[in-house]
């Protein structure tokens, strides 16, 4: 396999359109996501942030009428190519959801399950401990590993979901407003965790919260809907630039709170 990309990019999109039936929910997105950085996608409600995020690991496949044109390239392979298996894509691109969704299993099994189905052959106990440590949860749950994941608090559940994602060692972690259902303290812990995680992983995060984007991300993509109610990336740059010297007037209005 030939590496045609410069190595510092984890994934890129080329003229990506996402359709629901005949409606283009996301239009014309072309962007390169840098490796081991946090990229935030911001924008008002309904602008297609989540739809774009879910396109990266083909979660939109489950919406019956949806399809994609254009390309998403990872190591030169188009994720929407005919020969690509979406299960393999998701194996490499993990996801953390808006609401914590641990499996109705024990804490231990929540971590080990993904590894097991993906053919993990090493020491499972070690993997579980490591993943929980990486998600800053180990100290809180090390004595409760056999307990149901539902006994944890919301913030802990979300960190468990991060831990189970880390356990299968993906290349990229997608986060869909991972802190929106959590209290401020839990939110802070997740944000600290993200800084820790970006040493090993590329993170793409969708967030409603501009302060959060400003705090945690290295790059920010600003999305907005056009006259056809179709979402698009209107500006994509270093986070600092977006929040201090945006080129687009609409971005400026949005980040300064003058919008919607």
């Amino acid at each position: 396999m030939q590496n045609t990309q410069t190595p510092e990019y984890a994934i890129e999109t080329k003229s990506l359109f996402i359709f629901y039936g005949s409606f283009a929910a996301v239009s014309e997105v072309t962007m390169k996501i840098e490796k081991q950085k946090i990229t935030a996608i911001i924008g008002p409600s309904g602008c297609g942030k989540s739809t774009l995020l879910r396109a990266f690991n083909r979660m939109n496949d489950f919406v019956p009428s949806s399809y994609v044109t254009g390309e998403i390239l990872m190591q030169g392979q188009n994720l929407y190519g005919k020969e690509i298996d979406p299960v393999e894509v998701r194996r490499k691109i993990g996801m953390v959801f808006q609401k914590p969704n641990p499996f109705p299993k024990s804490i231990y099994e929540n971590i080990s399950w993904g590894a097991k189905i993906n053919g993990f052959k090493g020491n499972m106990d070690e993997l579980v401990e490591q993943s929980l440590r990486s998600a800053a949860l180990w100290d809180e749950v090390k004595d409760l590993l056999k307990k149901s994941a539902y006994e944890l608090s919301g913030g802990q559940q979300q960190r468990l979901c991060i831990a189970r994602t880390i356990a299968i060692q993906p290349e990229i972690i997608l986060m869909d407003e991972p802190a929106s259902a959590l209290d401020p303290i839990s939110t802070l812990r997740i944000e600290e965790l993200m800084q820790e995680l970006k040493k090993n992983y590329t993170i793409i995060i969708v967030t409603h919260n501009m302060q959060q984007a400003a705090r945690v991300s290295d790059y920010t993509a600003m999305m907005m809907i056009d006259d056809n109610r179709s979402g698009g990336v209107i500006e994509f740059d270093k986070t600092q630039t977006i929040f201090t010297r945006p080129k687009d007037k609409r971005t400026e209005d949005y980040v300064t709170g003058r919008f919607g």
């Binding site: 298996d85 299960v87 393999e88 194996r91 590894a115 189905i117 993906n118 053919g119 993990f120 052959k121 090493g122 020491n123 070690e126 993997l127 490591q130 299968i168 060692q169 090993n200």
Partner: peptide
């Protein structure tokens, strides 16, 4: 970076386990 990293089947060996799963 991670000692357990190698324990996951990659590439062709992953693909063959995946085919078994299917």
């Amino acid at each position: 970076m991670n000692p357990t990293h190698n324990h996951f089947p990659e590439g062709p060996s992953f693909r063959s386990t995946l085919n078994t799963r299917y």
